[in-house]
Every structure is written in structure tokens, then in C-alpha cells.
């Protein structure tokens, strides 16, 4: 398969060359025929004119074609190059800015996080403090209330004792008909009540 492929290609190429060459020969045959009669003379003026014309054309085209167009091509190439370079610069700038923005964003995010954390911490602390204070206050309040209750109770008990003593004395007077000094009684009753009261209360 491959062998046939290149053979065909070689044949094609050789065929092309042969065809072109033979075409050339066919086209040139009248010339060769006319040349057989003798070498045509070189006409110096024709050669001179042709060279002058060609050089003149070269000069004209230098002025009107090659110089301006080649310059324009160079110019355009430079413009494209410089704008590419410019674009590259801009790209680098944008990249840098993007990175900066990213950095900034990250920084501020971190900062915000820190702030929140700090606030949270403060809050926690305040909360703990408040709770502690409240607990303390409550404890104080309770202690005071207990103390008040204690004192009120004591007072009531004392009053009750006094009254009970007085009543007892009165009752005893009635029973005994004889008055003993009130102080003696009171002392006696108090001792008694104290004894009983402690057991009662």
C-alpha cells in the first residue's frame, strides 16, 4: 500500500516535470526553428533601453512602493508588537491588582473574624461577670432575707416569751394570792419558758 503510494507520487512528480518540460519545448520549437537560420543579432540600443527602463522602474518603485510600504509594514509590526506588549503590561497590572484585592479581602475577612471573636469573647466575659454578680447579689439578698427572718422570729419569740411570762405571773398571783416580787417571778418564768421554749421552738 505504502509502496504503491510513493510510486504513484514519484510518477506524478516525474510526470509533472516531463509535462512542463515538453510543454516548454513545444512552445520553444518555433524559436529553435527560427534560430536555426542563424544567431539573431544583439541590438545594443534595445539592451540599453531595457536596462535603463528597468533601473528607472526600480527607482520609481523604490520611491512609490517599497520604501513607503515596507516602512508601513514595519510600522504596523511595531504597533502590533507594542500593543501586545502594552496588553501584556495591562494583564500583569490586572493580575497584580487582583492579587492585591484578594489579599485585601482576605485581610479584612480575617480582621472581621478577629473583631467578631473579640466581641464574642467580651460578650462571654460580660455574661459570666453578670451571672456571677447576679448570683452574688441573689446570695446576698437571700442572706439578708434569712437574717431578717431570723431576727423577726427572734423578736416574735421574745415577745411571746415576755407575754407568756407575764401571763404566767398573773396566773400564779391569782393562784398563790401572794405577790412575789415581780422580778423574781419574771426570772423564774423566763428560766422555765426558756427551757420549754427551746424545746418547743
Amino acid at each position: 500500500m505504502i509502496k504503491r503510494g510513493w510510486l504513484a507520487r514519484v510518477r506524478q512528480t516525474v510526470g509533472g516535470v516531463v509535462a512542463l518540460s515538453s510543454l516548454q519545448l513545444i512552445l520553444a520549437s518555433p524559436v529553435l526553428a527560427s534560430e536555426a537560420h542563424g544567431v539573431p543579432a544583439i541590438e545594443a540600443y534595445k539592451v540599453m533601453w531595457a536596462i535603463i527602463n528597468f533601473l528607472f522602474l526600480l527607482a520609481i518603485l523604490y520611491k512609490f512602493a517599497y520604501n513607503p510600504i515596507l516602512k508601513m509594514l514595519d510600522d504596523r509590526k511595531n504597533t502590533i508588537e507594542s500593543s501586545l506588549r502594552h496588553a501584556e503590561e495591562i494583564r500583569v497590572d490586572i493580575e497584580r491588582m487582583k492579587q492585591e484585592a484578594q489579599q485585601n479581602l482576605m485581610d479584612s475577612r480575617k480582621e472581621a473574624q478577629e473583631i467578631v471573636a473579640r466581641a464574642q469573647q467580651i460578650g462571654e466575659e460580660t455574661k459570666a461577670e453578670l451571672i456571677a454578680k447576679a448570683k452574688e447579689e441573689a446570695a446576698n439578698e437571700r442572706a439578708r432575707a434569712v437574717a431578717e427572718i431570723e431576727s423577726a422570729k427572734e423578736k416574735a419569740v421574745n415577745e411571746l416569751r415576755d407575754q407568756a411570762a407575764t401571763l404566767a405571773i398573773l396566773a400564779a398571783e391569782k393562784v398563790l394570792g401572794k405577790a412575789i416580787t415581780i422580778e423574781d417571778h419574771q426570772k423564774m418564768v423566763k428560766d422555765f419558758v426558756n427551757e420549754v421554749g427551746d424545746r418547743l421552738c
Binding site: G5, R9, Q12, T13
Partner: peptide
């Protein structure tokens, strides 16, 4: 020649 003519064949 083969290489240069390759894709057109």
C-alpha cells in the same frame, strides 16, 4: 518528496 507531497495525496 514523499514527505512534502504527503497530505495532498
Amino acid at each position: 518528496l514523499k514527505k512534502n507531497q504527503g497530505p495532498t495525496d
